[in-house]
Amino acid sequence: MTTPAVEHYLSINSIEVIYDHVILVLKGVSLNVPKGKIVALLGANGAGKSTTLKAISNLLRAERGDVTKGSVEYKGQRIDQLSPNELVRRGVIQVMEGRHCFGHLTIEENLLTGAYTQPLSRGQLKEKLEKVYHYFPRLKTRRSSQAGYTSGGEQQMCAIGRALMAQPEMILLDEPSMGLAPQIVEEVFEIVRDLNSREGISFLLAEQNTMVALKYADFGYILENGRVVMEGDAGELRSNEDVKEFYLGLSSAGRKSFRDIKHYRRRKRWLS
């Protein structure tokens, strides 16, 4: 694991998640997010990335999922029984996959709802808004448009900005790159890095875009079929031959041609 000197904000200890009492989705996932770091949770479709995030934020129950084994701790305290409302108050907030902005509310109203859990005066609220607009200047220009009519990138920014309004210490960011143009993806990730270094917010981000995620993250976990199959520093993972082959589409022979896409040169050594 990482050096013991690092303070773990969030630690998940071998959790198991079952949907609808029958479908076993996570089979003992453990991971740690140190304070002030960006941790990437990587893997293909259906690997269990979103489920892991929802298990932490406790949005699972609304989808008939249940954490049946293991524990989730935040700053040394168990949080697996807390409601999302209490979690947000403690500083853990999730930005859901697919953005989920309130389409009929304006961008500014969206941001304001983010501060629902915060007892703020009108002046403080304004200050916070300005701070979010500082990080997301695009949102300021669209502040009075209905969120449903803004672009995908703007909605993603709105969703992150809305989470910021709740004064989080840790953001669980689910698939921020989904459906966005590569340039916008970079823009969003740059802001994430900014928030991380300047506001000290820790991130756990689930991503399919391994390349971008490893570029910005400090640490990464690779999830496959509900299990962590690999973990390590982002740089380490980037240079790992398996990761290159299976997740980055690179092999020692350089970029793969589509012709031999079916024939991996390597075997996934973690499959027994």
Partner: peptide, 19 residues
């Protein structure tokens, strides 16, 4: 505002801590 947010998207409202 929270009422309108809930009307738009239950889950998103839940995720940002609206009870």
């Amino acid at each position: 505002r929270a009422l309108r947010a809930v009307a738009d998207d239950h889950q998103a409202a839940l995720s940002i801590g609206i009870p």
